[in-house]
């Protein structure tokens, strides 16, 4: 099983909404675009692209370590399998009280249109189990979404900052 989290590089996002589409398709019954269009109830997406002026950014569940949603859930419908696992939802336990929607600071939990429960990003856990990337990450055309373990992402960020420092340094020495 692949391990990691979805990291968002907002400056690369074009707001093309491909991630929303592929998310909805991968959470449909058929997992195919053209079949899922006619499915009833319609498949819903769990990642949202919002635009403010020229800025846009996709947002999905951050799978927080100290999850506020997990703390307020009265029926323990939201849970974690283990320390590294994403925050998952048991729709049978969920009573749809919407407390998690209130508590979430990112506004990424929605109400399901078919079941009497909420829905949220599950990090495509079924795809991870067969060593595939989450649907939003593999479909993003500009690689604004990356799926990496935390250690690797910090390494990339460190290399980026060294490169940035080097550029400043070399421009000064000229």
């Amino acid at each position: 099983m692949k391990k990691g989290f979805v990291f968002i590089y907002g400056d690369k996002c074009l707001a093309c909404k491909t991630c929303e589409l592929s998310c909805a398709v991968s959470h449909s019954n058929s997992k195919e675009l053209f079949k899922s269009i006619n499915e009833m109830p319609k498949s819903q997406y769990r990642i949202n692209v919002d635009t403010i002026g020229e800025f846009s950014m996709p947002l999905n569940c951050r799978h927080c370590k100290e999850s506020p949603c997990l703390k307020v859930c009265p029926t323990s419908a939201l849970f974690r399998e283990n320390e590294d696992s994403p925050v998952l939802l048991d729709p049978d336990k969920c009573i749809g009280c919407k407390y998690c929607i209130l508590a979430c600071p990112f506004g990424v939990i929605k109400l399901s249109s078919s079941k009497k429960a909420v829905i949220k990003c599950d990090l495509c856990i079924e795809r991870l189990k067969i060593d595939e990337l989450p649907a939003c990450v593999s479909s993003c055309p500009t690689k604004a979404l990356k799926f990496k373990p935390v250690e690797e992402i910090t390494e990339i960020d460190r290399k980026d900052s060294i490169e940035y420092e080097w550029r400043i340094h070399s421009s000064r020495s000229k």
Partner: peptide, 9 residues
């Protein structure tokens, strides 16, 4: 939800 997401962005 939209208000929250816009604030985050």
């Amino acid at each position: 939800n939209k208000l929250k997401r816009r604030r985050v962005i």
